[in-house]
Design a binder for these strands. Structure first.
Lengths: 228, 228
DNA sequence: ACTTGATTAAAACAAACGTTTGAATCAGTC
DNA sequence: GACTGATTCAAACGTTTGTTTTAATCAAGT
C-alpha cells in the first residue's frame, strides 16, 4: 500500500494509535496495544517519535493542522462575502464543524476515528493532551470568537463567550460518537448519515447562541419547578 | 468528624477517589493515589469495595442515586402543575441540571468534585463506567424523554431525540469544568457563580431544542460558506 | 481476662507499563 | 563486495499497576 518505506512504519503507528484512541480513550491505550494493532516492533515507537507523549502529539497534529487550514479557508470566504456587514451565524458554526466531520466519510483517514479522538480531547484532563490542544487551537479560538462577535452584535461579548463555550461542548459530545445517542433513542438513531447530523448540530447550536437574553422580553422561568 | 468508625474509612476512600477522578479522570487515577489522598492502607480498598471497578461504581452510585431522586421529584412537580396540558420546557431542563449542580455549593459533598466526574462519564469509553452509567441512568432517560415529548409536541420524536442528545452533551461539557471556557474567554470568565451558569445553560439548551425545523419557514443555509 | 469478629497494617504477588539496549537487517555508495 | 547510515528486532530494564496474603490491632461480649 504505502510505497515509501521511510514513512510506512510511522503511518502504521499513527493510524493504529488513532483507532485505539478513538475506541478506548487516549489514557487507556498502551504503547503495547498500539504496536500490536500496527504490527510493528515496540522500539519503533521510540525510534520514530521519541516517547508516548510525542506520539500523542503527533496523532493530534497530523489531522488538526489540515482541519484548521480548512476552517480558516471557509471563514475567509464568509468574511469576504459579508464585506463590512454582519456575518451570518450558521456558516461560521459550519466552518468549525464541517472540516473534522468530513473525515468521517474518508476511508483513507481511518474513517473518521480522529473525530472521536478530537471530541474527547476537549474534556481530557491529561496534561499532554491539554497542552497540545491549547497550542493547536489558540489561533482557531481567536478567529472564531471574533467571527461570533461580528455575527451577534446585539449580544454582550461576555454572553457570546459563554454560549461559544456551550456550543463547543455540544460539538465535542456529538463528535465523540453515538453511544449516548443510542441510549437516548433506545437504539433507534445512529450517526450513520454524517451530513444530516451536521445540519442538525449546526441548527441546534445556532439556536442556542441566538437565545433571547435572560430578563429580556421572554424571561426564562428557572426558579425550581414550582407550579406556573 | 465522622463518628462511626465503621463507615469512616469507606467515606475517606470515596471522597479521595471522587476528588482525584474529577481532577485527573477516572482512568488516570490509580488506587495508590487514592489511598495516599485518603491516608488509609491499600488493602482497605479491596476489603471495603472488593476491586477497583467496584470502587468506581460506588463513587458514581453514592451521588447519582440521590441526584436522580431529586430529579424525579422536580419532574413530578412539573407534571402535577401542568395537568393534562403541555409541559414547560425550561423547568424540565432545569430539573435535569440543578440536582447535580447543587453539589457545587455543598462543602460536605466535596464541593462538587462529582459534578465534573459526572460530566466526564458521559463520554467515558471505559466499560465499567459505561455499564454503570447505563444502569444508573436508564430510568432517568426514559422519564425525561417522555417529558420532552410532551413539552415539544410540534416536533417529531426523532428530532427530539437528536436534540436531547445534543443537550446532554452541552451539559456534560459545562459540568466538566471551565478549562475550555478559560481558553474561549482568554481567562476572563469562570464557573464561579454556579447559579448564573445554570441559568445560561438552561437558556442555551432550551433555545437549541426549540430551533426551527430544517426546511421550515427559516431554512438554515448550510451548504458550504458560499456567498449569501 | 479471654475470646471473637471486624478492621487495619506491612509485605509480597504477577502482570503490564514506558523505555532502553545492542545486535541484526536493510538500503544505497564508493 | 565491503562500508555506512537508517531502520527493525528480540530482550531486558526498572516502575507502577491491581490484587492477595499473613499477621497485627482493635472493640465488644461473656
Amino acid at each position: 500500500m504505502a510505497e515509501n518505506p521511510q514513512i510506512k512504519t510511522k503511518t502504521l503507528i499513527l493510524d493504529a494509535a488513532e483507532r485505539l484512541f478513538a475506541e478506548q480513550g487516549i489514557g487507556h491505550t498502551s504503547l503495547r496495544q498500539v504496536i500490536a494493532e500496527a504490527k510493528v516492533n515496540i522500539a519503533a515507537v521510540h525510534y520514530h517519535f521519541g516517547s508516548k507523549e510525542q506520539l500523542i502529539y503527533a496523532v493530534l497534529e497530523r489531522r488538526i493542522i489540515p482541519i484548521n487550514e480548512e476552517r480558516f479557508k471557509m471563514l475567509d470566504a464568509i468574511e469576504a462575502a459579508a464585506g463590512e456587514g454582519p456575518l451570518p451565524l450558521e456558516p461560521i458554526i459550519e466552518a468549525f464543524i464541517r472540516p473534522p466531520f468530513r473525515l468521517r466519510s474518508n476511508p483513507a483517514a481511518n474513517h473518521g476515528s480522529f473525530v472521536r479522538v478530537m471530541g474527547r480531547c476537549m474534556n481530557e484532563p491529561n496534561e499532554t493532551v491539554q497542552a497540545a490542544f491549547g497550542r493547536l487551537f489558540g489561533e482557531v479560538i481567536k478567529r472564531f470568537m471574533a467571527a461570533y462577535l461580528r455575527a451577534l452584535p446585539e449580544l454582550p461579548p461576555e454572553e457570546i463567550m459563554w454560549r461559544a463555550h456551550f456550543g463547543a461542548g455540544t460539538m465535542a459530545h456529538a463528535m465523540c460518537g453515538g453511544e449516548m445517542l443510542k441510549k437516548v433513542s433506545q437504539g433507534r438513531l445512529d450517526m450513520g448519515n454524517g451530513e444530516a447530523v451536521l445540519q442538525r448540530l449546526v441548527a441546534f447550536i445556532a439556536a442556542g447562541m441566538r437565545a433571547p437574553m435572560l430578563g429580556a422580553d421572554e424571561p426564562v422561568k428557572t426558579k425550581e419547578g414550582k407550579k406556573a
